[in-house]
Design a protein around this nucleic acid. Structure first.
Lengths: 125, 125
DNA sequence: ATGATAATGATAATAGCTTCTCATTATCAT
DNA sequence: ATGATAATGAGAAGCTATTATCATTATCAT
C-alpha cells in the first residue's frame, strides 16, 4: 500500500513550482530548498512511482539524461538553454511535419528541441 | 604525425556505405564485416580523430548515445526506428520553426527527430 | 496510542559507455 | 630495407547515472 510521505509531497510541489521538465539532480536541488535532508535515492524512487501512477512522464532530450514533467499536458516541445541547462516548454508545432517522413517509413511520433539561450540567460549575456 | 592505417580506411568506408549516422557499436559491427579483428578501442580512437579533422560530426539523439555522421552535409534531420534502432536522414525542414521560440529566448539551432518504423521494419511488421 | 510495514537516507553496488594502459604491430620517411 | 614511432587490440580502469541494500524512521489502519 502506498503512503503519503512528506518527501513525496515536496517533490510534487517542486514540479508544480518549476512548471518545466526537471532532471533528477535538478529536482533534488529544487526540492532540497524546501527539505534539505531529502536524499537522491528518494528522488529516484519518487520519479519511478509518480511515473507509474501516471502523474509524471519522461522527456528525452538529445545529449542529456532523462527528464521528467507533469503528465497530461497538451502536445508541446522543448527549448534547451545551453547556458543554464534548463529545459522550457514550447507551445505550438509546425504543420506538415509528417511530410518529412521518407517513403515507406511509418511515423509514430516526433520530437522537436530548440537550442539557444533562455530569457534569463539571454538577458545576462 | 598521422598514419593511414587499414582500420581507419575500413571505418571511413563503413560510414560511406551506411550513408547514415552510426553509434560506436553499430560502426564496430559494420566495420568488422570487412575486418573482423577490429577492436572497439580503435573505433573510439578513430571517431575522435575523424571528428577532430572535421570528417565526422556528432549527432545527438533523444534517449540514445552519441552517433556520428559524415560532416558537411546540408541541413537535415533524422528518423529513429524503434524496431531496429537505426537512424536515417530526413531531408527538408518545416518552415517557421523559429516562430516557436518563446519571447525573450534566443534561438541558435534546432533538432527534429521522427520516430516510428523504417521502411524495412515497417514491411516486416 | 500502537504496531505492521512502507518509505527514507546513506552508501554500496551495478550497468553502460568511454578512455587509458601497455605490449605488440604496422606505417612510412629515410 | 630499416628504424623511429604512431596505431592497434585486449582488457583494465574510470565515469555517470541509476538501482539495491539495510538499518532506521514515519505513516496510517486499527
Amino acid at each position: 500500500m502506498q503512503r503519503n510521505t512528506r518527501q513525496r509531497e515536496v517533490i510534487r510541489r517542486a514540479f508544480e513550482r518549476a512548471a518545466r521538465p526537471l532532471s533528477p539532480q535538478q529536482l533534488l536541488a529544487l526540492a532540497q530548498q524546501e527539505m534539505p535532508s531529502l536524499g537522491l535515492a528518494t528522488v529516484y524512487r519518487s520519479l519511478k512511482a509518480l511515473s507509474e501512477e501516471g502523474w509524471l512522464t519522461t522527456v528525452e532530450l538529445p545529449g542529456s539524461i532523462q527528464h521528467y514533467e507533469i503528465a497530461g499536458q497538451a502536445h508541446h516541445h522543448h527549448f534547451h538553454c545551453r547556458a543554464c541547462d534548463g529545459v522550457f516548454e514550447v507551445h505550438g508545432c509546425p504543420p506538415r511535419i509528417d511530410q518529412l517522413t521518407p517513403r515507406g517509413f511509418k511515423l509514430e511520433q516526433h520530437e522537436i528541441v530548440l537550442y539557444g539561450l533562455c530569457a534569463d540567460c539571454s538577458r545576462a549575456a
